[in-house]
Design a protein around this nucleic acid. Structure first.
Length: 613
RNA sequence: GCCGUUGUAGCUCAGCUGGUAGAGCGGCGCACUCGUAAUGCGCAGGUCAAGGGUUCGAGUCCCUUCAACGGCUCCA
């Protein structure tokens, strides 16, 4: 998450909301300082849905960090309402660096910020700025804070019934894990009580479509403590979805000129030394296992194997672009606190491929991958996403990034030009690149609002030469190809996690684990129901008959809860004239439909990967 | 990994200030044979996350570990 997401100057309404939230943060800081006079204050900006403020409460007698309890939040919230009721004016003033240092003499974090302001280039939130900012403060009641504003006129303009303190969280000072951990209080704030309630209701709704909840209810995946965190077990319904996604990928990639390859889960250390992954990536890899004096690693990515496949024989320019694809299973040791349902796991199956091409072919190949994204997003009706051009940052050269600035600038420019020429909108974010090159990431948001990279399209100017990859040009000279890493369908784990939330579990027919369920009204109709289910299965439709002793209503309810797209209710009437009473998942019905007509309909829907019922 | 919260049957949860486990759903059995979101009755499920401690006595208190959740950091 970026530090400050909200733009300060959108509509006047936005401005007002921004001011309310920003001012609420100051009022909260005042309340905390009154209740905990020894607290050190850090920063407190407005964010998407509210605000936060970071505090340092020091350590207790056991040298453990002091924090806020949920009960403390109630007290703070109560005190905030009293301050608001006081209608204290927010007063702005500019101060010199010297004045500022005196003002915040007992506040080490503020002093550090003041130092940054004086030097220029860093604003009061620690973000980089173009020019040297002025040092200013806002004061309300007894509390004066280093701040550039803006704020509401007085505390009374913060609606006392439209904000709520939500949670406490640890957060590193300036977002750096080497810095001390501060205690962050998150609050949400709105223009009025109605907006607050709508926001809280939205959060409740989001929980219902959380893939972790739906994944269990719909029997798609589970985690088991004995298997281990971040290692999902795919239940049969999840297995179906994986098979469908792989089929989609295989169909699409075959048409786009990809070839399928396969590579092992394990490899000798040598391969990752060669690729350069080990120095950069060792923290995220499972530790090596050693046998007969040789170290083996479980693979965290597939690229080095594909490079070896490229190098399996001398290549001619006539073979390029060479596109090698594999749904490779990779293992990454994500730190325990970073795991998140299916969205962040330790074992993952990637929709991976590597495209080896010449510099002249690059733009076309890169855009062909972007077109793949667009094709998939159309199939899935995904509209809310952002393409992000992730570039390097000077300060990371030789550490996070391969140390060759000339190639960075050159390849970043190639991507920028390709995107501009293709008319694809994107945002550019520095210091987010892969260690071997810039990339286009597709950012999406989970139900609870967390941001993830779904798909990625990366340029690699480093690995081909490390692997000594060559091709012979038409002039008979040896050249090193460029490599594009791409994963438009993400990993099965993140993709399915995303799709569960995107569809709230109501998948399109082609992707639904069970596509049709035949529901006999009484046991008299079981044979007929079974026959229909068998015929559907024979036609490639995932179908079943519910022969349980339940009443029809209960069977319909069960099917609805499992979000089965088509329910075929059959009784005397249907048995007599070989029809079905079709009930769709959305509740709509088509009575007296000939079974043959339904067969034709459903098989067509599946073949089209249709998104309508 | 770090800060905080939580952890009772397959799932959702109840169990007051410590006195020795309960409901609904689900599962199984029996009866019911029913037209578009839950038929009724009965039965079986728990070493209260694991380990240690305090106590006459711990699901309830303390410690450690594990896991999940909310964040930070990091990422497909």
């Amino acid at each position: 998450m970026r530090k400050i997401k909200m733009a300060a100057n959108q509509s006047p309404e936005q401005d007002q909301l921004y001011k309310i939230r920003h001012s609420a943060a100051h009022v909260m800081a005042q309340a905390v300082l009154e209740l905990y006079p020894e607290a050190k204050i850090a920063i407190g900006p407005p964010i998407d849905t509210g605000f936060y403020y970071d505090f340092d409460l020091g350590r207790d007698e056991n040298d453990k960090l002091r924090s806020f309890s949920p009960e403390d939040l109630e007290q703070i919230e109560k005190r905030m309402r009293q301050i608001i009721a006081g209608k204290h004016a927010f007063n702005y003033r500019q101060v010199s660096g010297e004045e500022a240092r005196q003002l915040f003499a007992g506040q080490p974090y503020k002093l550090e910020l003041i130092g940054g302001l004086e030097q220029g280039g860093i604003d009061e939130y620690g973000n980089e700025t173009a020019e040297k900012p002025v040092i200013s403060t806002y004061r309300q009641d007894t509390f004066e804070d280093l701040c550039r504003g803006p704020h509401v006129e007085h505390t009374g303009q913060i609606p006392p019934d439209a904000f709520k303190l939500m949670s406490v969280a640890g957060a590193y000072w300036r977002g750096d894990e080497n810095n001390p951990m501060l205690q962050r209080i998150y609050g949400t704030a709105w223009r009025n009580k109605k907006e607050l309630n709508e926001h809280l209701a939205m959060l409740e709704e989001a929980k219902k479509r959380d893939h972790r909840k739906l994944g269990r209810e719909l029997e798609i995946f589970i985690f088991d403590e004995e298997v281990g965190p971040g290692l999902p077990l795919w239940l049969p319904n999840g297995g179906v979805m994986i098979a469908e996604l792989e089929k989609l990928a295989a169909d699409t990639e075959r048409k786009a000129g990809y070839q399928r390859v396969r590579s092992p889960h394990l490899t000798k250390e040598d391969l990752f030394l060669r690729s350069g992954h080990l120095p950069y990536y060792a923290d995220s890899m499972y530790p090596p296992m050693e046998l007969e004096g040789v170290k083996y690693y479980v693979k965290p990515m597939n690229c080095p194997f594909h490079h070896k496949i490229y190098a399996a024989k001398p290549r001619s320019y006539r073979e390029l672009p060479l596109r090698l694809a594999e749904y490779g299973t990779c293992y990454r040791y994500e730190k325990s606190g970073e795991l998140f349902g299916l969205m962040r796991v330790r074992s993952m199956q990637m929709n991976d491929a590597h495209i080896y091409c010449t510099e002249e072919q690059f733009e076309q190949e890169f855009m062909a991958v972007i077109d793949l994204y667009r094709l998939y997003f159309e199939i899935f009706n995904v509209e809310k996403f952002v393409m992000r051009l992730s570039t390097h940052h000077r300060k990371g050269l030789g550490k996070k990034y391969i140390d060759n600035e000339r190639l960075w600038l050159k390849t970043e420019d190639m991507v920028r030009r390709a995107m501009d020429n293709g008319g694809v909108p994107y945002v550019e974010v520095p210091d987010e690149a892969a260690f071997y090159g810039p990339k286009i990431d597709v950012q999406i948001w989970s139900a609870i609002g967390r941001e993830f990279t779904l798909a990625t399209n990366q340029v690699d100017f480093a690995q081909p030469s490390r692997f000594d990859l060559r091709y012979t040009t038409s002039e008979g000279k040896e050249e090193t190809p460029l490599c594009i890493h791409r994963a438009p369908l993400s990993t099965h784990e993140r993709m399915i996690g995303f799709l569960i939330e995107h569809y709230a579990g109501a998948f399109p027919v082609w992707l639904a684990p069970q596509q049709a369920r035949v529901i006999p009204i009484t046991s008299e109709h079981n044979d007929y129901a079974t026959r229909l289910a068998l015929e559907l299965e024979a036609a490639g439709v995932r179908a079943g008959a519910d022969l349980s002793a339940e009443r029809m209503n209960a069977k319909i309810r069960d099917a609805q809860l499992m979000k089965v797209p088509y329910m075929l209710v059959v009784g005397d009437q249907e048995m007599a004239d070989n029809t079905v009473a079709l009930r769709k998942r959305d509740g709509s019905r088509v009575n007296g439909m000939h079974f043959g007509a339904f067969m034709e309909f459903v098989t067509q829907q599946i073949a089209d990967r249709s998104s309508v019922l």
